[in-house]
Nucleic acid binder design. Sequence first.
DNA 1: ATTAGGG
DNA 2: CCCTAAT
Length: 654
Amino acid sequence: MGTAVGTVEDCIEMFEGSAQTSVTPFSPTNQIGNPVAYKLVRVSGDGSLVPATDEEILEVNETDMHIASDACQTVGDLATDEENLEVNETNIHIASDAYQTVGYLATDEENLEVNETNMHIASVACQTVGHLPAEGMSHLESSEAINSGLLQSDNVRPDTDQYNEKMLQKVEQEERLGNVHGSQVPSTPPDVNIQFSNEKKFIKEDQAHYEALLQEPISFSSNVQNECNVNQSGMIEPCSNAAASPKETALSEAAQKPDFSRVRGEICLDDLPIKALQETFRATFGRETTVKDKTWLKRRIAMGLVKSCDVPATNLTIKDNKLIGKQEKSSVMTNVVSKDMCDDVRATKPKDAPSSTDHVNATDHYYASEDYSSEQRAAKRVRKPTRRYIEELSETDEKQQNDKPMIPLKDQRSSEKPEVRSISVSSGKRVAVTRTVSLAGSEMEVPYVSHVRRSRPRENIMALMDYHSSCLEDRASPAESNFNLTPSQLNNEVVKRDLVVESASRPVQKEFSTSDKNNEEHILSEVDQDMEPEHIDSSGNSSDDMGLPIMQGGALRRKHHRAWTLSEVTKLVEGVSKYGAGKWSEIKKHSFSSYSYRTSVDLKDKWRNLLKASFGQSPSNSMGSLKKHGSMHIPVQILSRVRELAEKQSLVPR
DNA sequence: ATTAGGG
DNA sequence: CCCTAAT
């Protein structure tokens, strides 16, 4: 079957196919406060969604990924380490009209690893927050990802010109998909606040600025004007202050092609028939719609007018006019930023609630989020840095992973929708998105990134380069030439080939080069020469082992398992013969310069195993061959060679 | 920073 | 493989 990955638009097209793979935005219904989660699924003929298999996921790595979403929050979370490498050649375009878009970019080495990634996050969000740790700014600014569009100016803000386009696109998509989640009202996850208070350092006096900042993207959007007025001085006039209804305001001020007569004046959306709603929709968005869903239409219209996803589902049944005009809550656009959360926070902080008025000002917000973030940080700090190993071994119950109590603010809402256990944790440096979601009944894991480094520290930059380029190789070969081979088939074939090559004595490795160019050539030639299997199974492993640490059997596999290939073993043996057992760093330097993932410790361990194997093998020759499953069958020659060397070493200990 | 060993 | 202790 073919595999297609693309925009949500493409997604639609895929419905026409029988069974294809697509990246489908998971839009939990009535989700509030949970970031949208993406999972890879296949749309089977009957329209049901089937979790993608490893291979499919792998294939996606090579594909351009366009994600359009109306999530309240879109978290562009760049994975780290291997995970990053896996998206090296992926172009990720996230077009989102999310209320908030948080682009999290890793720092340090992690940035290096996303070098090849083009990440465009075009957001029409009311608010776009770039999670930029102050300390990491310099790094971030040097990141291509940043340069390529995530951050465009001093203020992280969406390309306003694209707002309308995206919005319409999205609406269109929803229509075409029949994906009408009328009552979805995402809200803002906690960490947003943190980011605001901590990263942006908003202060009370800056309220105007703050609001202006938030408004800016909106006021710049052209077609879908909203209820907010921003005069030239930068002052903001919340629509609530406007005498006219939001709609009126928006429409009268907006010089647009859409026919606004339809939406002029007070209109109670609830009273309108579907047809009228459609008209209104057209007037608002300047385009026709075929959606019949009244709720959806109403919400959509409201959203269009408010230019925010913050159209509460619960209020949807209320007259939208009132909703917008009367309930100042939603009109206080600037503060809708997780207004719910603010409430929650304030609930715990009796004092500063401005009692009567609904005037949730930035001050409150600020304080609230400040405290909130403080708590977060505190919690974060408390966390023990390196209990990784223990966790790995004992994390049978990964659901409990929330090492941070994560502020029980989520209260009812979280309990209402446990499907998406998506948690954003901010330590001011990282954002981790996790979870297991259930869609269409099936449970599946959403790729999530631990804030813990998942691979061994890199030796140096060259090692990184090595890995990087080899990774590119990895991705290219299996995905293209061996497209329809199963991993096992691949392995077999490769191993066979490797055996052949194996017999020939291998030339000494080229010297470790400090030149990118040279090094790359080195890698390439190397790969070209013997088509090292590890390049292939490495990718295989990356999906098998890293992607799914927990097997069906329940037994968890090592996070970083890379099967040793014969050529590696050979290199190792040769290395030992040359430099002697124990000189692992030497061996690594000379014989494994192109295998950055093999550390000297790995070499040592492997050698230890080889010794065990070689000595345990001689008594009963059958042992090695009878071991049908698991480790590869090390050729007797090598084992004998190993024994030979071992004896030599023991006899002549330096 | 490397090695040796235990798990 | 991963972790730690000892060099």
